[in-house]
Design a protein around this nucleic acid. Structure first.
Length: 1013
RNA sequence: GCUGAAGUGGUGGAAUUGGUAGACACGUUGGACUUAAAAUCCAAUGGCCAUUAUGGCCGUGCGGGUUCAAGUCCCGCCUUCAGUACCA
């Protein structure tokens, strides 16, 4: 009987689907275990072999846990809102929902053919209204909450209103906007409803505020900090500028400390935790207030500059202040004499994109405002400068500049000839600043003299507090996250506006589904795509979405005085415009892991019963690229839900593993369209275009004599083929080099790097008339390079082809065999024959030409030993997520059992359970051949028994001065002295010693003997 | 610059607390079977030297150190990858 993997795999995939083998129940006597993958965005390109890596690993773990007797939850779904479907819609007019549906079908087919043990009955899709109803619901919960810093948790906004009504806001310690006016209870009660709403908005966990955002003009939307890489958009690489806009934000900053502390309680990789720590960016120091000295012109209006510093101990070293050019005080304090210069500078910096600013951090620029601040202690006037090395977005956007202690301040001071007073004892600051706080002794600093960093910091904070000009403060880099996007294909906000103030739609009327639009582009007036919708207003009387035409024009709110417009007399009919923005990509992925626990619940986000049963994710596997996005936002929402009493744990994933990327092996065809020269030191000597359509096989490229001759021949045929200088260089005997080459589709290339020339010629018109210079054996070879797998590099390997040619079990085994899960490693299809022939050998262990050959024969001692060492190793490997080594272990086991001619069921039956998590199809098939009616999926994992591994003797390595020379078989129960005697008596030992007496003999029983001579 | 991870044959990688470096595969070479190919099987395969088998020397990025013994531990470098970056 042949190993017909295609038939077998289809058969068992159908069986699992039909019998719902992997459906998880929310009630069980078994202990629970939750294994989760990061759900995919269903892109149009489908899966390549790199995508399933993490899914295979988690599937092995899930299957293993089932064998261990756990009730396993292993769901899968789709993160199906997103940009590509929308951009496709803009180009073709096709509704993103249709594209998404098609892509999901492809994904599902591809996932199914790999044989994952997902419980598909729990599938979620973020773009499904039944799902995003709950995303909208959480948004409303966030809106209705504020963060109480005293209680250190989120509380209902009604609690805050109660406090305001009773005592105003003077004693409220909340995470909120910095600049909220202080009011009394009487004030509050006398405020208009609008005013009250405006104030509350500044406390809510999601709030509408004018903030400086990252605006990407090319994408027509704002982006979050984590969506920008190197100053350009993560998607598409478009420039990003800073712009003030009114946007929804999430007050994640309220959770900064808890997000930091929580990292200590979870088993995530160190690098990932470190990324999150950096992103949160905690720094401890002090805030200090520097009063601005009034000038004649500014009159009595007083200003103060608040700064944050981690080195308050250096305050006597301050010789100037620097404000970010965008700082609001700049225009208020600049003197008339300096106005022109300052304005010019502010304008110049505003024009520079984030990227330009990052590209040239070396150039020092700035301007003097003409104003001075007063030093809190010396009362000396300190000049106030502006400079773009101070960032508006960090701290207060202003710094106290201590040039002797900070290199940037130092450079700025040097550049503008500002004094650099030294406040450190015994330190030379003539060349650079002294920033080593651990070796600091403060000098020239009044009451701080002689103190070290720690003592001086403590002392200065006390003094600042006495003066009321500062206090100890902890600052976080973490900014509130912008939550609105000017896009179509995302969750609509459950929000409408009355007099410009946002109102939540009552949760019972959710979901608010995406409206139909004609065009997916922004409107002509620059509104988001939802501005094109004609049925997009909220009828508060009938609680439904109605046509925009019905909206009564509301009076404009302008500042403090409401100026009634001419049409404002119209009676309010209770129909208001809905929010035009949609939610960002991370909205839907920030709570999906909990929804899987109870995915079809229409009354609640999940039942308390379900969440209390599954609790949290036990194992989460996914890519490290989500370190500061999804994985931070999800932790934030989970902590919020924990505060609201909705979830039992404030961390959603106990353990997290990042799988590495599988890289592609690109194939390059060398075209003689340009040459460059290198001298013998590898220095480039000149590069020139060559107008030829000649393609060179890789072996030819390295043949210098051949290349030279080829170029000379070309010259003869057509002197104008290239620059004359090429031939000058040829005479100088420089090394002739060709460009890297052009990507050829890897499907045209076989395992020996030979190109299918015909296929390549027919691929693109430009290759039609190409001339190929092959190797001497007539083949044409490509050069290879490892790169990220991508369509544009033509190095994508499709798992469909692999499954068809070798089977899903081979694919699964090979992906694991490639190397450690977390590591980046190149894909090489040729290597799959190794695991494929292993599966064939495995099959042959059970079957010969006449069918099943397994019987009830007593197993040999050797076979029992093979089995039990395999059980031990595989179990350890799975628990350590070392899947690559267990594939080797299987190979060794099958090789040994084949050599032992083992046909004993007592061995071969448990072996199948060991292999089943890795290669479930073949395991099921052989399991059923052995007579089982039930799936192997729940068969108990074999018990390891030490007794089969007990040895009576050990093949001791005998080394001389640490070098192993020969081995000696000795009984394991032999004592140290006897071993020494036996070894010394051996003639080979005498041979090695050549008559010398050993100085020392080290005997480690059971391990090694080392003779020092 | 800072933070994190890594560097082992031609290639992917293995080596659990320091104890036989290169498991298991790929590739390559030779052989068997075959008209031939595929498939399968057998043998060899870190480098160098020697050879009649037995052998010898060198080898885990580089330079030191600890130890009877170092891929593994310590010190100092180099390189690569990833993240982050004027964070006050």
């Amino acid at each position: 009987m042949r190993y017909d993997f295609n038939t077998i795999e289809r058969k068992w995939q159908d069986y699992w689907a039909k019998n719902q083998t992997f459906k998880a129940e929310n009630h069980s006597d078994k202990p629970k275990y939750y294994v989760l993958d990061m759900f995919p965005y269903p892109s149009g390109a489908g899966l390549h072999v790199g995508h399933p890596l993490g899914y295979i690993a988690s599937d092995i773990y899930a299957r293993y846990k089932r064998h261990q007797g756990f009730n396993v939850l292993h769901p899968q779904g789709y993160d199906s809102f997103g940009l590509p479907a929308e951009q496709y819609a803009i180009q073709t007019g096709q509704h993103p929902a249709i594209t998404t549906e098609e892509n999901i079908k492809t994904y599902r087919r591809q996932l199914d053919q790999i044989g994952f043990s997902f419980d598909w009955s729990r599938e979620v899709r973020t773009s499904d209204p039944k799902y995003y109803k709950w995303t909208q619901w959480i948004f409303i919960q966030l809106f209705n909450s504020w963060y109480n810093n005293d209680a250190n948790k989120a509380e209902d906004i009604s609690e805050l209103v109660k406090i305001f009504e009773a005592e105003g806001n003077a004693n409220v310690n909340a995470a909120s906007d910095d600049a909220i006016e202080i009011f009394t209870a009487e004030d509050w009660n006398s405020f208009s409803s609008e005013k009250q709403q405006e104030i509350l908005l500044q406390y809510r966990l999601t709030y509408l505020a004018e903030t400086e955002v990252n605006w990407c003009p090319a994408l027509g939307t704002v982006l979050a900090n984590d969506e920008i890489v190197n100053g350009v958009s993560e998607r598409g690489g478009h420039p990003v500028i800073r712009k003030k806009m009114t946007q929804w934000s999430m007050r994640i900053s309220a959770y900064a400390e808890r997000l930091l502390q929580g990292l200590e309680t979870i088993d995530w990789t160190d690098s990932l935790k470190e990324s999150q720590r950096n992103w949160i960016g905690k720094s401890v120091g002090a805030s200090v207030i520097f009063p601005v000295i009034p000038t004649e012109r500014s009159g009595e209006e007083s200003h103060e500059i608040s700064v944050f510093t981690t080195r308050p101990d250096t305050i006597f070293g301050v010789s100037f202040m620097t404000l970010a050019p965008e700082h609001e005080l700049v225009s208020l304090i600049t003197t008339p004499e300096q106005k022109a210069e300052v304005d010019a500078y502010v304008e110049a910096t505003a024009k520079r994109s984030e990227r330009d600013r990052m590209a040239d951090v070396k150039t020092i620029t700035g301007a003097f405002t003409g104003a001075y601040a007063e030093h809190p202690f010396t009362k000396e006037p300190i000049p106030i400068w502006i400079g773009d090395y101070v960032l508006a977005g960090y701290g207060t956007g202003a710094v106290m500049s201590v040039p002797c202690g900070d290199q940037r301040d130092y450079d700025f001071a040097k550049h503008f000839n500002i004094p650099i007073p030294n406040i450190f004892e015994g330190v030379d600051i003539s060349e650079e600043a002294f920033a080593d706080k651990d070796n600091t002794v403060i000098a020239n600093s009044d009451f701080l003299n002689g103190l070290n960093y720690k003592k001086a910091t403590k002392k200065i904070i006390e003094e600042l507090e006495k003066l009321g000009l500062g206090e100890g403060k902890t600052n976080y880099r973490l900014r509130d996250a912008v939550f609105s996007r000017q896009r179509y294909w995302g969750e609509p906000f459950p929000v409408y506006y009355v007099n410009g103030m946002p109102q939540m739609i009552d949760a019972q009327y959710l979901p608010i589904t995406l409206p139909e639009v004609e065009k997916y582009l922004p409107t002509e007036t620059g509104e988001p795509p939802l501005g094109n919708a004609t049925v997009w207003a909220w009828d508060t009387k009938n609680n439904k979405v109605v046509s925009n035409d019905l909206v009564t024009e509301a009076p404009e709110v302008t500042g403090e005085n409401q100026v009634a417009s001419s049409t404002s007399a119209t009676t309010d009919n209770g129909i208001y415009p809905l929010e035009l923005n949609t939610m960002p990509g991370w909205a839907g992925s920030s709570q999906y892991f909990n929804r899987y626990m109870d995915p079809h619940n229409e009354d609640e986000i999940f039942s308390q019963e379900a969440i209390n049963y599954w609790q949290q994710v036990d194992l989460y596997i996914g890519g490290s690229e989500h370190a500061t996005g999804h994985l931070l936002y999800s932790r934030f929402w989970q902590k919020f839900m924990f505060d609201k009493g909705l979830v039992p744990y404030d961390e959603f994933a106990k353990k997290l593993i990042n799988q590495g990327m599988i890289l592609g092996t690109s194939a390059f065809v060398r075209r003689l369209d340009g040459v460059y020269f290198e001298d013998d030191k590898g220095v480039m000597k000149g590069a020139y275009n060559v107008s030829s359509n000649i393609y060179l096989s890789e072996g030819r490229v390295s043949n210098q004599a051949f290349l030279k001759e080829l170029l000379l021949n070309l010259k003869e045929e057509n002197p104008k083929i290239t620059n004359e200088k090429v031939f000058d260089n040829l005479d100088k005997n420089y090394k002739i080099c060709l460009r890297k080459g052009i990507h050829a589709d890897v499907s045209f290339v076989n395992a020996s790097d030979e190109l299918d020339i015909e296929a390549f010629k027919n691929w693109q018109p430009e290759f039609k008339d190409a001339e190929f210079i092959c190797e001497e054996d007539g083949t044409f070879k490509v050069s290879r390079e490892v790169e990220k797998m991508s369509k544009s590099k033509y190095n994508v390997v499709n798992p469909d082809n692999i499954c068809e040619q070798y089977g899903a079990d081979s694919l699964r085994l090979y992906e694991m065999f490639l190397g450690p899960l977390e590591q980046y490693k190149p894909w090489n299809t040729a290597g799959i024959t190794g695991v494929h022939s292993f599966l064939k050998k495995l099959w042959k262990l059970y079957n010969d030409d006449n069918g099943l050959k397994v019987n009830d024969e007593e197993p040999s001692k050797d076979s029992l030993k093979t089995l039990h060492k395999t059980i031990k190793k595989v179990q350890e490997d799975i628990e350590n997520f070392s899947f690559n080594t267990s594939v080797s272990t299987f190979m060794i086991a099958v090789n040994e059992l084949t050599a032992q001619k083992c046909i004993s069921k007592e061995i071969l039956e448990p072996l199948l359970i060991l292999i089943s998590p890795y290669a479930p199809h073949i395991a099921e098939e052989l399991w059923s051949q052995l007579g089982h009616q039930e799936s192997i999926a729940m068969a108990p994992f074999p018990q390891f028994d030490e007794k089969h591994l007990v040895e009576s003797s050990k093949n001791y390595p005998i080394s001389f001065n640490g070098k192993m020379r020969f081995t000696m078989e000795l009984p394991l129960d032999m004592g140290k002295d006897d071993i020494e005697k036996a070894v010394l008596a051996n003639e080979k030992t005498q041979e090695q010693l050549q008559g010398r007496t050993p100085k020392k003999v080290i005997v480690v029983p059971g391990k090694i003997v080392n003779i020092v001579g």
